[in-house]
Simulated assay, not measured.
Amino acid sequence: MIRYTFLVVLIVGLGFCGMAQNKALVFQSDFGLKDGAVSEMKGVAFSVSPELKLFDVTHEIPAYNIWEAAYRLFQAAPYWPPGTVFVSIVDPGVGSERKSVVLKTKSGHYFVSPDNGTLTLVAERLGIDEVRQINEAVNRLKNSEKSYTFHGRDVYAFTGARLASGTIRWEEVGPKLAPQVVSIDYQKPVIENGIIKGNIPVLDVQYGNVWTNIDQTIFQKLGVKLNDKLHVIVYKDQQTIFEGDMPYVNTFSAVPEGQTMAYMNSLLNFSVAINQGSFSEKYKVYSGAEWSIVIRKTNR
């Protein structure tokens, strides 16, 4: 009985401790792939543990674009299993007083990042369990103390690899902070008097389609049916950039080539596009916390 109890406790304990140790480490940055920066980070991680499995969200975040970094984590993270560690480096304030942190979400995911707004959306969507500040006296690449401009390699990749591999326990990341992160203000999706307001967090960059944060649940409250006409207004900092009517359809082929349309994207969020054209390029509509959209059914 004693042996059996010990075995059960050991199995349960390993399962609990293993939450941060599925050995998956996922990188994101605005570095691009033209030089060796991404390779350096992965080399550091692999040196910590050759058993790590290294992946990428993207390294094509526009330079210094913290908001897009926030959205790409929000887009990708829910599709990864609990215990996955993400390392995100879009860090225009590198070397400043901004904190280097690891966020553990209620979903069991870990995010290693500067606390500069990058964690806004995953904190909202997945919930904050704990936040710890990285103790660089322990969790920093050896002999990197005189390097002040590449914390992505020297601090974040190193700490992320140590956490993902089980080299350190969660508590060894560093001191526990208040359960909050720096948050970027943006228009959250709301519906009032038959009008929905939302944000344009990102573009479908390959095609110029405009994605919003208005999810299917909120959109359905408008009572829109296929082929109904919608009136759409896009603002940047309260200035009207686009205004027009378009049909709500399921597929691009439902409208003639070159025509505007509204649809649900692959994340089941409301989006607008031009069939075989770039809505963004034609109407100069882009994305970010300062971009918002208003939609309503037309009477036509």
Results as ranks from 00 to 15, higher is better:
F158T: 05
K229M: 15
L226N: 14
L226E: 15
V285M: 08
E51K: 15
A137G: 15
Y148P: 03
L203P: 01
A76C: 01
M264W: 13
E172M: 04
P201Y: 09
W67Y: 02
K188R: 14
A63V: 10
S280E: 07
N116W: 05
V26E: 07
P78A: 11
E124M: 07
T298A: 10
K106N: 06
A45I: 08
Y71L: 03
V87T: 14
S29H: 08
Q239D: 00
L119R: 01
L73I: 03
I191N: 12
V12E: 10
L33V: 08
V272H: 07
Y235C: 05
F55E: 11
S165P: 02
Y248R: 02
Y110Q: 11
L52F: 12
L126W: 12
P175A: 15
L177T: 05
L52S: 04
E257H: 15
T212Q: 00
S49G: 11
S39W: 07
K34A: 14
S144P: 02
V173C: 11
L119G: 09
M19A: 07
S49K: 13
I233G: 13
V138H: 08
Q180E: 15
T120Y: 14
P114S: 13
F279E: 02
V94E: 00
Y110T: 13
I293N: 07
S100Q: 12
N143M: 08
G83A: 13
A289F: 05
A37T: 11
E257D: 15
V202K: 13
S29V: 09
I134V: 06
F242H: 06
A254V: 08
D154T: 12
V181T: 12
E243H: 09
Q220I: 04
V26A: 03
A45K: 08
V190I: 04
T118W: 02
D115P: 08
Q28W: 02
A262S: 15
V190E: 10
V190A: 06
P189T: 11
K106H: 01
V210F: 06
Y79V: 03
C17R: 14
Q21E: 07
L33E: 10
S287Q: 10
E124A: 04
L163Y: 04
T240H: 02
F252N: 05
N213T: 00
A24L: 10
G18M: 03
N193E: 14
V255W: 07
Y283G: 09
G166K: 03
E281H: 10
D154I: 09
K225M: 11
L10H: 11
K225I: 06
R140V: 10
V210M: 09
R72F: 01
A289V: 00
I196N: 10
Y207H: 13
K236N: 12
A20E: 04
G288D: 05
K225V: 08
P256L: 14
L177C: 09
G277P: 02
Q133N: 09
N250Y: 15
P175K: 12
K221L: 07
A164G: 05
M264Q: 11
I200K: 06
Y235V: 02
R153Q: 13
K282W: 01
G108T: 03
L54A: 12
I61V: 13
V155N: 01
K106C: 02
F86H: 12
